[in-house]
């Protein structure tokens, strides 16, 4: 019994210590944002890597999800003859929850893993040490540009995901469920409120910071060797995904329970 409590206690302490380290890491990142020099080239590169190259996966994820959502709502709604709510529920479901969460998780899979693996490899091959000896701070040169790119580009990706998701629902609704095209769009537009969109984009920004920050954190703290890189990559994706889902719950709470 005592041993069990001790184990739980140790686990909780470990978690708190981890959170503390992560907070310090985030604070250090922010501190570099307000102190020159800034590495513009790295930032542009990160924007392209995090944003532009993620568009295909974001688009496909949203398209299929929007389509499936329309089918489900139609089938479910038919049980109490409420099929007509498809446009509204697809819109609200995509924009409020599925858009940000699924885009966030896809970014955790695509961007977090690649950042963690890249930085961990740099650590293992002494490239981080080499940066330091060349008077370049790795936090400033590697972490800040990526986190900033995540913060700025994720709302855009989520916005694109929301629109494509709604379009997926629209395609299914008008092509196979017999909705009128103009009425479908009108219903969607009438139903969505500014708060829906603001919450969606805010979630995007928060998830973007989480995804990039976790990649950098796990990469920078990688153990030595190929196994270290593997562990860092795995850990970063798991942590990013869990934190994104937890943050999503908190943000939904914040925005929609008043």
């Amino acid at each position: 019994m005592i041993r069990l409590l001790a184990a739980i206690g140790a686990g909780v302490l470990g978690l708190l210590a981890g959170l503390g380290r992560l907070t310090l890491f985030a604070a250090e990142t922010v501190s570099h944002a307000v102190r020159p020099p800034f590495y513009g080239r790295e930032f542009l590169n990160a924007l392209v890597q995090v944003g532009y190259f993620s568009l295909p996966v974001v688009g496909l994820t949203a398209l299929f999800t929007g389509g499936a959502l329309a089918l489900q709502i139609y089938a479910g709604g038919a049980r109490f003859s409420a099929e007509a709510v498809v446009p509204q529920i697809v819109a609200i479901g995509m924009v409020r929850e599925l858009g940000p969460v699924l885009v966030g998780l896809m970014i955790a899979a695509r961007v977090t893993s690649s950042i963690a693996a890249e930085i961990a490899t740099m650590k293992v091959t002494e490239q981080l040490d080499a940066l330091v000896t060349l008077s370049t701070n790795p936090m400033k040169y590697l972490t800040l540009p990526r986190v900033l790119a995540g913060l700025l580009v994720m709302p855009v990706l989520v916005g694109v995901g929301d629109i494509i998701g709604i379009y997926g629902g629209y395609l299914v609704g008008t092509r196979s469920l017999g909705f009128n095209a103009a009425a479908y769009l009108q219903n969607t537009a009438d139903f969505l409120e500014p708060l829906d969109i603001i919450s969606s984009l805010t979630k995007g920004a928060v998830f973007g910071v989480i995804a990039t920050l976790m990649g950098c954190y796990y990469g920078m703290h990688s153990d030595r060797g190929a196994m270290g890189v593997g562990r860092a990559t795995k850990g970063s994706v798991v942590a990013a995904a869990v934190l994104i889902l937890a943050a999503n719950f908190l943000l939904t709470n914040l925005f929609f329970t008043a």
């Binding site: 020099p37 590495y39 890249e118 740099m122 091959t125 002494e126 490239q127 040490d129 080499a130 940066l131 000896t133 060349l134 008077s135 370049t136």
Partner: peptide, 27 residues
């Protein structure tokens, strides 16, 4: 200081000349 690392530690995302001139391109 200048330092040659045992494993080279070149930045593999940058072409050779940008590795060599790293210090001269920033800071």
């Amino acid at each position: 200081f200048g330092m040659l690392f045992q494993g080279g530690a070149l930045f593999d995302s940058l072409p050779v000349w940008q590795n060599v001139a790293f210090r001269l391109l920033r800071g």
